[in-house]
Write a protein that binds this DNA or RNA. Structure first.
Lengths: 250, 250
DNA sequence: TATCATTGTGTCAATTATACACATTAATTT
DNA sequence: AAATTAATGTGTATAATTGACACAATGATA
């Protein structure tokens, strides 16, 4: 938290913020990275502001690097949240007041327009770091999340909706799974995102038909039953599928 | 243009703008509504700014009402454009300088972050109105559009890409066609958006399978050949399809 | 009245999706 | 060590959808 101990509002564009819904996958559950506000102890999405010479993408990348230590994260802009009332009661302000520090209360009293991003990251590689306003940064399972500050729950739900949509025309997994993974693990990921079960055999056939997977000779040992094959993504084809989409539609 | 003869920058949020790609369909061609800048005579997308108590949606709706006279337009936010360089050379500033009026040059020298919307409107019902900076508001066919100010061509292309994507999971047509239309007309619309031809019979079968169309007893007369049936959209089912999407995917 | 271009409708084959069955295997239990 | 268990690997029959195409009907025009 050292690097942000002095919050410099001059560097940022007024009115403008971004919020990130960071998805990870662990224990067969979809996790979201959240921050706990120092004083109010409410939970919030990681977010930030845009410097005067930054694009939103750069700013979001910077924020994610700070919160997870990771570069090269899959990032997708999914919606702008601009309800004039959305940032009326800002817990960050409350935190600043409670802290007695109040360096920049005025800044936080602004109306903020926030651009929502969702990110897909490898759970095992991320190292959650809290920020100036929070005392804890942690993964939460979706079903554990009941309330968030401001409209962050709404932002989270919209992100999830968009992620589910993405499954229908783009591959997913490279950013959420370790380099080597089994077919059942990939299937679990899909089932978790979609919130429903899929047929094991049909899933495998469909997934293989995309030609984005390479089956390795290795198998995953240590499990209690038959050892499944390990797969890795064929990055070249994966990128192509990301670009061109999986279905034609028309 | 009377209502904007005094440009009041105080009312708007700094740094923030919106641009609209307004699509219409006429003469079997996809048209886009453009403005011609008063002095530089360059073409631009209609756009605007956000008032301090407005959401982006409200602002976009207001802008479209001013440019087309229409309410209840289909509007979709599709991307935020935030490259720090994007508004460096702003023709509006040039226009203001050339005009000698220069009431708010400083305002336009700001860096702007723009939210892109695309709109689908009934060509025959829209009444193009220029704004304070333009002397002409007109429909242009896609293939006529070679250059636009700033990054507006890029915005247009992204809008088109998103519109094509939308065809794959949502119905389109209600906002672009008159209330009653023929199947060939609807097909032409799809072909125009996609930029490719479709099989007449397979198109009809697929389209009818969505259950969003009602065939009327009437036929369209006056054409040189066999009179085609007229259809109208079943609004209830159309809205459902907009919400739920047309395909499952998974 | 014949011609022409377009519309309405249908069919067949190929592809894809859905719902299953059975053999295999690695750890665990007996 | 053999039997058990609960997964995994592979395949198949059926239904549904898509793609390619043929032919009859019709309204204006020649």
């Amino acid at each position: 938290m050292n690097h942000e101990s002095k919050f410099q509002r001059e560097k940022f564009l007024n009115h403008i913020s971004l919020d990130c819904v960071v998805f990870g996958f662990h224990d067969n559950q979809l996790k979201v990275l959240l921050l706990r506000m120092k004083f109010t102890k409410e939970w919030a999405l990681p977010g930030g502001f845009v410097k005067e010479d930054e694009s939103f993408e750069t700013a979001a990348t910077r924020v994610l690097k700070e919160r997870t230590g990771l570069d090269n994260i899959f990032l997708k802009q999914f919606k702008v949240f601009s309800d004039p009332q959305r940032s009326k009661i800002n817990p960050a302000v409350q935190d600043l007041i409670d802290s007695g520090a109040n360096p920049d209360q005025e800044w936080f009293k602004q109306r903020f327009i926030s651009v929502g991003y969702y990110a897909l990251v490898d759970f095992s590689k991320a190292e959650p770091q809290s920020d100036y306003f929070s005392d804890l940064c942690a993964w939460k399972s979706l079903n554990e999340i009941n309330t968030l500050i401001l409209d962050h729950l709404q932002i989270l739900n919209k992100a999830l909706e968009n992620l589910r949509m993405q499954l229908n025309y783009q591959p997913i997994g490279y950013n959420l799974l370790p380099d080597k993974f089994t077919m059942p693990e990939l299937q679990k990921l899909y089932e978790t995102i979609l919130g429903k079960e899929l047929d094991r055999r049909n899933f495998q056939r469909k997934m293989l038909s995309y030609n984005i997977l390479t089956r390795l000779e290795e198998r995953k040992t240590g499990g209690a039953h038959k050892a499944p094959f390990l797969y890795e993504f064929n990055l070249e084809n994966y990128q192509k599928a990301l670009q061109n989409g999986l279905y034609g539609g028309w």
